[in-house]
Write a protein that binds this DNA or RNA. Structure first.
Lengths: 126, 126, 126, 126
DNA sequence: GTGGTCTAGACCACC
DNA sequence: GTGGTCTAGACCACC
């Protein structure tokens, strides 16, 4: 099953986000070689040109670095990944707050809604 | 501007969710007449048949009640709406937790992430 | 609400059946004047010519008798009505048996199905 | 010869009833694949969309289960079919009683009417 | 091949 | 006007 894109937004931007997410989740290890443009293109079901553009952008942001003849490697600066992680986390929080915000919940309902979050997250880490 | 749909999921299901969201947000008042099938179809830029299917599902769930020749009306049972509100809120929390969960945040980062939520939500209600 | 016809069968035949049913049910009293062709046609939502044909057939069967200038009257022979009543009852039984027949019910299920009939019918007559 | 529908009632509801009847009569075997939507539509002389709606309702009731790319299958729970059988039988009885009820039969006539039923049904099963 | 969704356009019953 | 049903024909995902 190839990756599912929202056709209303540029595909190469969605690819960039996806690769960043996978990286901060540990699916691509720091300093390790990323799948080649062609392989990743095939895996996500997109045109290799589109994937090449995504890799180019990621390199421009210094999220990956491509070495001629060797391939592309995840940035090995931990602060860079941490910043990305924080950015993704805050984006998720922002969307959550905006979806919840105009639901008309009263204070008690908000408490009940938020209470399990910490627990679920800690449990996930056990 | 017609409503934006995710083409990867059935439109009629997205319409159902959208109408529920609008209702719990108070955009459609309980017991009040909903825009007609044709009008809502025009407003969202879909075929009237697709909208009719969405309304049909909503009636099957007792979220609205439709009367031939008269129109469609939001269910006037406040518990029904409250249940829907809770369901939407929990779905948003679930997605938030799942997006955050495998980001590899440590306890301190989680605290920093969650801290502002309550404040933002209360601020929205002022 | 005008009468509902099955368009797959001649309307005048359905009218004849309907008038006979109403009569044996006592909706038209023996010896009493039937509504005029035009009135009955309007009531059932059919063309007066169609209704006239139905009346003609009913008279040919001696179920009603039309007296010039006075109108149409239900046959006053009680045996005639009794025969009609029996015919309708047996037709209903025949349809019931045929619908039940190939349902694959075992003897016990048939017993349970038939048991309440007598009771319901007697109860209806109290 | 395509199936005969009563034009006064929705075709898709009549299709549903017909498929249930055929199933309890053993024309479609439990767990077996039903004719495809298109084939059944052709056989009954209706539009594939109408047939799809009937199948969709049948699946919602768990009378069949449909799998994309594979086909639709009769529910393999014998209790489900037995319940349907009972429902059809009781519906037939109900219509019979209602047609008979206001015919004005006396007790003796009712006895004569009911007497042959058991015999006819048992005869059908020999 | 299979079922699932969507559009387009028609006609109906009810108000 | 309103919702409900039906046909015709298309395209999709899954097998």
């Amino acid at each position: 099953m190839s990756f599912k894109f929202d056709p209303n937004r540029p595909i190469y931007l969605q690819i960039i986000e996806e690769i960043k997410k996978r990286t901060v989740r540990g699916q691509y290890l720091v300093g390790t070689q990323l799948p080649s443009v062609r392989e990743m293109a095939r895996a996500m079901g997109v045109n290799p040109n589109t994937m090449a553009r995504a890799y180019m952008e990621l390199e421009r942001e210094s999220f990956i670095s491509s070495r001629r003849g060797q391939g592309s490697f995840i940035c090995d600066d931990p602060r860079r990944l941490d910043a990305e992680r924080r950015r993704l986390a805050e984006a998720a929080r922002g969307q959550f707050v905006s979806e919840i915000g105009d639901l008309g919940l009263d204070a008690k309902q908000i408490e009940e809604l938020l209470a399990p979050i910490r627990g679920e997250l800690n449990h996930d880490r056990d």
